[in-house]
Design a binder for these strands. Sequence first.
RNA 1: GGCCCGUUGGUCAAGCGGUUAAGACACCGGCCUCUCACGCCGGUAACACCAGUUCGAUUCUGGUACGGGUCACCA
Length: 482
Amino acid sequence: MSDIITTRFAPSPTGYMHIGNLRTALYSYLLAKSQNGRFILRIEDTDQVRFVEGATDVIIDTLKMTGIDYDEGPGVGGENGPYVQSERKDIYGKYAEQLIKSGHAYYCFCSSERLQSLHDENGLGGYDRHCRDLPQEEIEKNLAAGVPYVIRQKIPLEGTTSYVDEIYGEVAIENADMQDQILMKADGYPTYNFAHVVDDYLMHVTHVVRGNEYLTSTPKYCLLYDAFGWERPKYVHLPLLMGKGEDGKISKLSKRHGAVSFQDLVNEGYLPQAITNYIALLGWCPKETNQEMFTMDELKREFSLDGISKSPAVFDYEKLKWFNSEYIKALPDDEYNSRALPVLEEICAPEVDKVKLAGLLHSRIATFGEIPERVEFVTKRLPMDTELYVSKKNKTTAESCKAVLVDCLPLLEAADSWDNDTLFAILKDYAAEKELKAGAVMWAIRIAVARLGITPGGATELMEVLGREESLARIRLAIDEI
RNA sequence: GGCCCGUUGGUCAAGCGGUUAAGACACCGGCCUCUCACGCCGGUAACACCAGUUCGAUUCUGGUACGGGUCACCA
């Protein structure tokens, strides 16, 4: 058991899955699975104030949708449970007591008001270690009197604590620069700082994978392991995910940069696999290959620590879109239709051929969320801009297009059936007869019928989707408008 | 502000002492085409700066600048 690599993902239930968090989960999972290890999900809900109903389900659902399956955790159980910290509340106290006995922690009776004023005075400074060396009798007196207390870690006043991070190498921090951080809160719950150390030990976690905001606080955790006499785990701190603001400034990825939760992205029409694939490459790059499209199994095979970058990565929605469009294009028709058709059903008139329209859209959309705007012209006659008739490539002008429309209207009216092949043949023949470029004819018709410059299909394809009556009506209207 | 980390094109990134400094997204151009898209072909664009080590630095060391993180009874 101890030989096998064990990682965990330990989010706090906030109600949504931040994309940076998801990447941490993914890397943690991949590290374990790349070496046939175990992966644990642990819910860190020691903050009772921030409790969010149903938040754990969001986490579990996200992992399920992305294919990050855990070997132990809520819902699946395991021999190291429970996997929700609030359900493990009883076990932290005795470890804290142990630390007090061994001189690595102490009771602190300072009120939160005092702490607050301390903070206000110093700005940045922290606790003044007021209770660090309280006389034993005073401690007992306070305890007996029921004075609320927290338990703080007794950080050595001198010396340096260092560890070797798997990504960043040696990190050394002066003990004097560390705070006597709180291990147990007044409400009896442990802090993250304490709980995760105890749990990682109890759950036999061998590699702690997390964001690099913990890089400099890790020595404090190392001191805890040392105090208990436990073997320290290996640390894998990941470069942060950044966002680029409209002002061009780069900062930690947050709401102001757009959709940052997995659920937001899914709602916008991104596929879970596309999201996973993209974020896998944000801070990691495979060795010996230039591959970009990865299935989860391939990631498990290729993933390795030495491919992880040290520098922060800016989340690029454009590239995510590209991945998503690739995944959409690769979708089998039935799967694609099951996503696209409902959207079209909802926004299109009954006479519109949704299956045809969906087909036209298949290779042209980057997200399912953009379907409504792409097909708006089908159900609505958009305001016409006659400039659209001008095509330098096809050498058309509004006037030349009008002539084409006038000529073609009766031909189309006479069409004995209304499908793409028939319509195309009619127009092609017309172009040949008039010695026009086919493109010039198609351009005129397409603009007239779509009233839009960029369309999800060619002239005759659009006419087929719009139907005979609407198409002809639009051509007549267009003639009048020029 | 103290401490810590980082710095290759607009973005993701390969590189790990000697290279014409990969590739992808985006962008631009071309081809194909019934438009757009797809697809194919091509192009623009980068080693933050200054010292040092070395025969030789994008690669190693130091400093500067810039960016980020952290200093909670949040995780």
